[in-house]
């Protein structure tokens, strides 16, 4: 228990972000080159479309120790492939419902639309998501042996 406390004192959330090549990935780049301050604890996986993200991937990350997973894509109507992000939204709804039903905190996953020109929005989204996850603490699954 004391050990666990000690771990939590220096707790730094691990966040995974899936970024669409055509919008939020460029948005993240813009946030970077604009030298905007944001938490440094997220790892990004670039995907060619947010609809490339199978909900199973998101749960994989959670099971493998991520504290939060954010999927970002183009605003509805702006998808590079015309309609990919509409499918993403349906998948996210399915994922969140299943998580809720099996008793896992659905707020550890998030979907957000961020365009290539929205560097500041990217930075503030990461701030916001980091704060949410930080307040929740460690993902209980990350130390679960019997998964």
């Amino acid at each position: 228990m004391a050990d666990k406390k000690k771990k939590e004192a220096g707790y730094e959330p691990k966040i995974l972000s899936f970024c669409c090549n055509w919008c939020s990935y460029a948005g993240a780049d813009l946030a970077g080159v604009s030298r905007l301050q944001m938490p440094a604890n997220f790892r990004t996986i670039r995907v060619m479309c947010s609809s490339r993200v199978n909900p199973v991937y998101v749960f994989t990350a959670l099971e493998r120790g991520a504290d939060g997973v954010i999927v970002t894509g183009c605003h509805p109507g702006d998808c590079h492939y015309a309609r990919g992000n509409y499918f993403t939204r349906r998948r996210q709804a399915l994922l969140e419902k299943v998580l809720e039903e099996i008793g896992f905190d659905r707020e550890r996953v998030m979907l957000r639309w961020i365009s290539a020109s929205e560097g500041p929005e990217f930075a503030s989204t990461m701030e916001e998501f980091d704060a949410t996850i930080r307040s929740k603490g460690k993902n209980p699954l990350s130390e679960e042996v019997f998964l």
Partner: peptide
């Protein structure tokens, strides 16, 4: 990776994960 994080891990992995994954794939 698992052992570093947990100190023990079920082998082979993915028992509960299998069911969550199946729910995500076919429950609809």
């Amino acid at each position: 990776n698992d052992l570093k994080r947990k100190g023990a891990t079920r082998a082979p992995p993915g028992t509960v994960f299998f069911h969550v994954g199946r729910l995500l794939h076919m429950s609809i």
